[in-house]
Design a protein around this nucleic acid. Structure first.
Length: 303
DNA sequence: CTTTCGCCCTGAGTGC
DNA sequence: TGCACTCAGGGCGAAA
């Protein structure tokens, strides 16, 4: 399940082959993979064929490719959803997964490639979207200095690895919210790039209970939590992302290795690496929360 | 306005 | 063997 580190691995892997490449042909095998493409923008295929990709940019879990010749106008937006993959292939490669969309591209130096969008559960999508200016005038994401981002990504907060991310604004928004800390971590309009795995891992590392109200999370614990969020994301990135169910593979089809480093997620019934008590799994937001009931507390005022 | 809920979707796994 | 059911969860529109 791709979160920030997995999407970044994909972005970094694609960038050298797609930046500067011409889109020569586009095939859509599954129309539902275009659910985020507005028909008002025009036909997806016609909008792409003959355009040149300027860069590969990422904010949180969103990935997009500004399109030439006017790179301030439109971009191809990609979200991997739960099971999406963007695979860089040699022309003619037969995909064993569920191929939804294929872009044929031609790079002036790297040559021809197929960019295969594979997505089992169709929670992911591709779309051509118009670009709008960032509210702060800073670069929209990692991979380009362009201060423009797709309109459907404009409401998404910067991610914690973005140099323009404001820690102060994040802490302020936490104190204004009336919700639990894990809900807040998963709210992409507050902080982006975190999904269920890294939320559980960061909360475990910071020893914060997932139901702790954001209002009562004091400044030092909030600061520690954000630091742990950054640490877990950076460590996962360094290891090439998490994969334990073969859903996630990078652009060459190889899996990440971070699953060996998980402390809480998916470890229900196994000992907490810190205190030895069993990790617990509880139902939460139609998914699961994994945590140590002994070392992850509800804060000093609840202890 | 804010917060929470239900839906989308498919393949692997489980129990009978 | 086959069938019904559960589970995985990101994002969004609807409901509360």
């Amino acid at each position: 399940m791709p979160e920030l580190p997995e999407v970044e691995v994909v972005r970094a892997g694609l960038a050298p082959a797609v930046a500067g490449a011409l889109i020569t042909a586009v095939e859509v095998f599954e129309p539902r993979s275009l659910k985020r493409h507005s028909p008002l923008a025009g036909p997806f295929v016609e909008l792409l064929e003959g355009r040149r990709i300027a860069a590969a940019v990422r904010r949180g879990k969103f990935l997009w490719f500004p399109l030439g010749p006017d790179t301030h106008a439109q971009a191809l937006v990609t979200h991997l959803g739960m099971s999406g993959q963007v695979l860089l292939r040699s022309p003619g490669t037969v995909e064993d997964g569920l191929l939804r969309i294929r872009l044929q591209i031609e790079h002036p130096e790297q040559g021809e490639f197929w960019v295969n969008f594979v997505d089992q559960r169709i929670f992911g999508s591709m779309a051509v979207d118009s670009l709008v200016p960032t509210s702060d005038g800073r670069a929209a994401g990692l991979g380009s200095e362009l201060a423009m981002l797709p309109s459907q990504v404009a409401h998404i907060s910067r991610d914690p690895l973005d140099p323009a991310f404001s820690d102060e604004a994040f802490f302020a928004s936490l104190s204004r919210k009336n919700t639990g800390i894990k809900r807040a971590l998963l709210d992409q309009t507050l902080i982006s790039g975190i999904g269920n795995i890294y939320a559980d891992e960061a909360l475990w590392a910071a020893r914060v209970h997932y139901l702790e109200p954001t209002r009562t999370l004091d400044a030092s614990r909030a600061s520690l939590l954000l630091a742990e969020v950054r640490l877990v994301l950076e460590r996962a990135l360094a290891e090439g992302g998490t994969s334990f169910d073969a859903q996630y593979v990078n652009v060459n089809g190889a899996s990440g290795y971070f699953s060996h480093s998980l402390n809480a997620y998916g470890r229900q019934g196994k000992p907490c690496p810190r205190c030895g008590n069993d990790i617990v799994r509880e139902k939460f937001m139609n998914r699961s929360s994994h945590f140590c009931a002994v070392c992850q507390t509800l804060g000093p005022s609840f202890a």
